[in-house]
């Protein structure tokens, strides 16, 4: 470190790494991860999500898991919270999970085909 500017740059970067400890951010991706979810491949979904989020360096996104979301037949599934707004994606594959990241989280477009509403219909 040689300058104050450098110190500030390091701080900006470091803050991302510890963001989790102030609790969840505004954007949360919650993966259903009970036995049913895991059997349906929820782990792979999580890994894909994490990988893609890392690629895009999305710092405000928290990935967590939860228990069975109540619709085991639609697993693997996730709920995406943006403040008050909730979108539920179902019947996911790792590729779809990556698309959710690139489309929904990066570009802000809902991946309609996999939302629970559209899917159930």
């Amino acid at each position: 470190m040689k300058t104050f500017a450098e110190l500030e740059a390091i701080r900006k970067k470091a803050q991302k790494d510890v963001r989790l400890r102030s609790g969840s951010g505004d954007v949360r991706v919650v993966v259903g991860m009970d036995n049913c979810g895991i059997e349906a491949g929820a782990r792979q979904i999580t890994i894909a999500l994490m990988d893609e989020i890392n690629k895009h360096n999305l710092q405000d996104v928290t990935v967590t898991q939860t228990e069975c979301l109540g619709a085991c037949r639609l697993e693997p599934m996730l709920e995406l919270y943006e403040g008050e707004k909730k979108t539920t994606y179902v019947k996911l594959t790792p590729e779809l999970a990556r698309q959710i990241v690139t489309e929904h989280l990066v570009n802000g477009k809902t991946l309609k085909s996999q939302t629970i509403g559209v899917f159930e219909r």
């Binding site: 104050f4 110190l7 500030e8 390091i10 701080r11 970067k13 470091a14 790494d17 510890v18 400890r21």
Partner: peptide
Amino acid sequence: VIDPEILKEYIAYDGYAALAKVL
């Protein structure tokens, strides 16, 4: 809250910002 042996964690929580301000 932080790992005390990692400087970057301290910096992340505004570490040395006060020193920077003072100096």
